[in-house]
Design a binder for these strands. Structure first.
Lengths: 121, 121
DNA sequence: TCACATAGGGATAAATTTTTCCCCTATTGC
DNA sequence: GCAATAGGGGAAAAATTTATCCCTATGTGA
């Protein structure tokens, strides 16, 4: 695994929450798990742009940060289910707030994001 | 400037907000600007762990995403002031929600983050 | 027997972000 | 002339995050 060379800042609440939700797919993972898509393959179908590999890695981090738990059923073919911990559940309203803001400003956001992507204004 | 090789996903609200606030210092920049620290040198003092360079880069992106505006006063030595746009102001409650969650769970977060950082459990 | 579904992991490459280093503008004050 | 002030920016390096490729295992259905 990659080993950090610089320590994170943990000064304020924003630093702290950043440490656990900063990651390209983490918020979506939490969101979909909360919606009931608990198995890895389901999550992958909900987030087709991410590879299985990254999802596993980010799921593991979420688990280490105690936002989700992983339950492995000793069956073949393997079955795994992720669930939010109580701690993780407290994050849902916050994620919801993020998503709502994004939804409410969808058109404008799409516009400014795309404008910036195209070098020729 | 770096030119993206892969297009971002812009499917849902979470994708969209991610595009504009994902960046190591962006949320803090918005927060401090909102608190009245509008000049670059003030922001740098509030965020000493970031270099002036990154702050400039991220401020520029925030500006291009229309969350802040930059006012340059034609004086010597130069004077610059950033302000939130109306659009940017609507993001403040969301940032506030993030920060509050972080503050409310400070101890636990600090603990799980540090635990994960130290390879030997 | 072969393909598929499930879940996972190592090694390595590529993409992206952040940092470092060094330089530039112009004026005021010594 | 030189330093200090206030704000910037290019190039390249370092750090970090994501993606790609290939491999493990077992049971089911064609």
């Amino acid at each position: 695994m990659y080993e950090r060379k610089t320590l994170p800042n943990l000064n304020c609440g924003l630093d702290l929450i950043g440490e656990v939700i900063y990651g390209k797919w983490k918020i979506r993972l939490l969101w979909f798990i909360n919606e009931g898509h608990q198995r890895p393959s389901q999550l992958q179908r909900k987030i087709p742009d991410a590879t299985r590999r990254v999802l596993n890695i980010q799921l593991k981090e979420l688990e280490e940060h105690e936002l989700i738990t992983k339950k492995i059923y000793p069956v073949v073919p393997p079955k795994v289910e992720y669930s939010l911990t109580e701690f993780g559940q407290t994050l849902i309203p916050v994620i919801s707030a993020l998503g709502n803001w994004g939804d409410q400003n969808e058109e404008r956001l799409r516009s400014v994001i795309i404008k910036r992507l195209q070098p020729d204004g």
